[in-house]
Design a protein around this nucleic acid. Sequence first.
DNA 1: ACATTAATTATGT
DNA 2: ACATAATTAATGT
Length: 238
Amino acid sequence: MNKPVATSTLPRLDESLLSHLPPFSKLDKRQIRTILDQATSRRYDKGVAIFDEGAPAERFYMLLDGYVRVVRVTATGEQVTALHIPAGQLLGIARAIGKEFYPATAMTATESLALSWPMTLWDSFAADYDGFATESYKTVGNRVSEMNNRIVEMATQQVEQRVANALLRLINQTGRKVADGIEIDFPITRQDLSELTATTLHTVSRLLSAWEKQGMVQSKRKRIKVCDPHALVVLSQI
DNA sequence: ACATTAATTATGT
DNA sequence: ACATAATTAATGT
């Protein structure tokens, strides 16, 4: 496959990249400077793995631009997307839950830019920087509860509700407000949605077509826009 | 209530 | 022109 080109020789990283992000927002300029000086910056093409499931968790990452999907591969070889991570969030933070290996693969959904640090710095970050540990645990907690919700949905809800919920989550996490609705900010196919909701791309296609006729969504190839989120909420709670 | 199969059409490089 | 994505209808469990 195509290997992304390392760009660790960038002139200098600007403090404003991190200063407003939750794990770092309580830190002063000097602290952020030392953090940045230890970071490696790298660009990733769309559709490449930042790290692989089962690999030793050697680094942790801050996604600065783009979107990443956390993917697991089942015994039968199918890909299952566990969740999507938008820019501004940490990823590969296995260490926060005491894991030595990455529990899933992180694939870029778009061209992305991420900073990374060796995992050996994790403990000193947590110890030295106010708010870093608590914010990291928050994001871990949020992701765990989100995955739990998905599992409950799978077991209890019907396909239409699951797809509606998946769409709602996507626009909450990665939605971009546009003129007449909220658009999912990265390319997503019917196939992707079907993997998120454990159904088929055909069913997703049919649902989206039906919803489009009712004016709740609009979609082109790889682009989905939700025009009436509330209608989806209603649908998801039947 | 949904999946599967297959055929057809649309869309992006 | 080609591959990939999306739709649609028919059939199966």
